[in-house]
Amino acid sequence: MIWWRELPLLVALTLIALVLKLLPVPLPVDALRPHWLLLVLTAWTLRRETYLVLPMAMASGLVLDATRGVTLGLHCVALLVPLALMLHWRSLLRAIPLWQSTLVAAALFAVYAGLLSLLDTMTGEHSQLSAHWWPILFSVPLWPIFVLLLRPRPVAQQTA
């Protein structure tokens, strides 16, 4: 159980992702902004200790809901479903080449965007649905970079 060792890094990354999400930008630029939170959490799930990813996703989802002013739990569901799928296929995804896992990640981003659109419609939020879909284009190229950056140190160094 080394999850507590990685906790500060996970919290820091999540907070940075939240700030990047909350950063006020002009509306046209907003659509180009990657889904930072899902990007960080999925890359983390693939390469790092997964014990705290889901609670972290839940907490940051609540923060997003509260700050965006939508129904609480909306972003939680949208974040938890792709992450659960990621956890389910984690061993498989770690085995296949990075470009293939990137395609799977793209599908997970689509799930996220689809869930956001669906839940926005169901809860009666008036949101621009394209604002959920366009960021996928800019999230997917970043995903392998994040995975490479989050590559754990070799075990020899960890034990040292």
């Binding site: 889901l54 609670p55 996703a57 839940m58 989802g61 609540l62 923060v63 809901d65 509260a66 129904t71 609480l72 739990g73 909306l74 939680c76 569901v77 938890l80 479903v81 992450l83 659960a84 956890l87 389910h88 839940l119 809860t123």
Partner: peptide, 28 residues
Amino acid sequence: ALALIVLSIAVLVVDLRTDALDPLRSSI
């Protein structure tokens, strides 16, 4: 994961139907 998703959906439904979660929202 399933438990958390179910919990999230429960939060979603409760917040959609009632004002009970307003304190939670303000503390968040």
